[in-house]
Design a protein around this nucleic acid. Structure first.
Lengths: 340, 340
DNA sequence: ATTATAACCCAAAACGTTTTGGATGTCAAT
DNA sequence: ATTGACATCCAAAACGTTTTGGGTTATAAT
């Protein structure tokens, strides 16, 4: 039912070749013919069938993004913002985004493989990289273009954008130490994620530079959700000698920490300092506002996508590995400023 | 470079017709031939070229979802969860999701149009419906399958899933009235959204049933973000006669309300009651936990998608309009239970 | 010995594009 | 009158599938 190039050819009395060439601005079409064809195409409301176009061109102008969902109640503000960033670059270059959801595990690679060999996408944006990431290995082997948000361990060379989590944590810890804290606890995200190792390393190194340590009982693990931050914080507060400051590996868990503290009737920032990591928009509107490390997720999403598209288009981006320098955002949750 | 059906034909000495039919389980292929073809296909790592398949079948097995992004710092936990819901149904039926981002406005319809006439998607999932929604009008006119999360005003008949926001607010207001509140304020989302009108209506009607009113000074407007909830709450608290309870049109704004209250050193739930709407996962881990109306976003995303796919496949779903009955989740923010 | 039936196979068309490799006609220069 | 250059056009192949409408062979029934 929709109008094809063939319909235009019939209507104008020209060949389909000429129609195609006229519409694409080739110069072997006379001005009058071109004018006629363009007019008729508009009249008939022609839009090219992208499937056919892509089959012929052997390019899809689509980038893939597979959401690593963990369970049904999946709601990380991170992804909304990241996706918006991907979208902005994609739209700019006329690319589409093919999204699917897939929990890590057995079938994960299969999902990538199907999109690659089914020629549904020209490349992938990867997120939440893991220390030994099978996806990266697979995509490298098959020479599928991809750019990752995050690094892996080892010497593999591939395009990525990452924030320097170790330096970020250094800023946080130094700030807390400066405020006089000696007993600092850390709630780490699962160590399969590279960013979790970086951040943990940052915490440990900075503490030891300051002549302090991170004893085992002050190192606990959460799963990035607010709820797990709350649970872990409760355990920390139950200790015989509870910490005076708690750092969470991400903002969401930091929120949980704050509510655990408040439930006991203590004051965040005064009785116990709290800090997070990510600076999601919500962090400035909590009570008290959260001290955290800023991570420009939207910009990173946008940058990652831009690099990917350049690689797909065969341009060589001037730089393919970015390590962002983090910025500490001091708010009231660590007690540096007067708390209300 | 990737292996096609033609390669398999050459290798097995069969025709491409036979290869295709063997792989699709037609019964005019001998068992031995089929076994041979399947084996060779596996050996060579064949996966069909979906572009070609779709061009031929005139179906894309893809549903479209256009994120209505407002500005760069876009981070609504709603969408992560909704997208996960879409994903679960899509995967179940072997459908893909084509996502793009587009702020409402001039070019919005164009984005939909391009995907429809470019035959990139078989249908759309719509979200954040507005009272007079040009998207719905367009999709109806072009007979493009779609299912919406949310209703519009007027008598237009189309498939949707929605939660009964008016009843939801009735539950909230009744609960607050029962607790003795007389001065109740409401922070409404922008009234271009149908759900905002429903919720406002629910608040007003229930108040008037209880012999109360919602005076103009107690009705303010926010843009769904936590920050705007905070700003609006501050204004309400500055009133000569501030409300004793504040209802926010969504949870995110309710969080902002709570931190505005806490910044003044008041106690949420004791000095002022707060309630939200949505029951996003974070709501149970705030301090105090938020009283709110549950909205099963993941399930709604999944249901909407399932209906859409059935329509696309030509099956007639037994029901195409769902109005969910809301459920009130009572937590400490409204003071019903003892606050810590 | 013919015919009918069943089992198995395949050539060719189709989906809607783009690109290749000419074909045709005109005009100017020789 | 021939040649060359240029402008304008188009048929056919190609991208990788599925489907249509047969064809061939072997076996069973007459």
């Amino acid at each position: 039912m929709p109008v094809t190039i063939k319909d235009i050819a019939k209507r104008t009395g020209k060949s389909i070749t000429t129609v195609s060439r006229a519409l694409h601005g080739y110069n072997d079409v006379s001005p009058e013919t071109r004018e006629l064809i363009v007019r008729v195409a508009n009249e008939m409301g022609y839009t090219p069938n992208l499937l056919a176009q892509r089959l012929q061109k052997q390019r899809t102008d689509t980038i893939g993004f597979i959401l690593p969902t963990f369970g049904p109640r999946f709601s990380d503000p991170f992804f909304s913002e990241f996706l918006a960033g991907i979208g902005s670059s994609a739209t700019k270059y006329g690319f589409d985004i093919l999204v699917s959801t897939q929990p890590p595990g057995e079938k994960e690679l299969e999902a990538y493989r199907k999109k690659v060999t089914g020629r549904q996408v020209d490349g992938f944006v990867l997120v939440r990289t893991r220390c030994h990431d099978p996806r990266i290995q697979y995509l490298r082997e098959t020479r599928t273009p991809f750019v990752a948000f995050g690094r892996t361990e080892g010497e593999i060379d591939y395009p990525y954008v990452d924030e320097d989590g170790a330096s970020g944590m250094r800023l946080v810890v130094e700030h807390l130490v400066r405020l006089g804290h000696q007993r600092i606890a850390y709630i780490s995200p699962p160590l399969i994620f590279t960013f979790a190792r970086d951040r943990l390393r940052g915490v440990q190194e900075t503490l030891s530079d300051a002549g302090l340590t991170l004893p085992d009982m002050y190192l606990v693990y959460g799963d990035l959700t607010q709820r797990s931050g709350k649970v872990q914080a409760q355990a920390l507060l139950d200790l015989f000698e509870p910490p005076t400051a708690i750092i969470a590996g991400n903002d969401l868990m930091a929120f949980g920490v704050m509510s655990a503290i408040q439930e006991r009737g203590w004051k965040v920032g005064k009785d116990i300092a709290v800090a997070g990591f990510d600076d999601i928009p919500m962090s400035e509107a909590t009570h008290p506002p959260l001290t955290t490390v800023h991570q420009p997720i939207y910009q990173i999403g946008s940058l990652v996508t831009e690099i990917l598209i350049k690689i797909i288009l065969g341009e060589t981006p001037e730089q393919t590995q970015y390590l962002m320098k983090p910025r500490l955002i001091i708010r009231q949750s660590c007690g540096a400023q007067s708390d209300h």
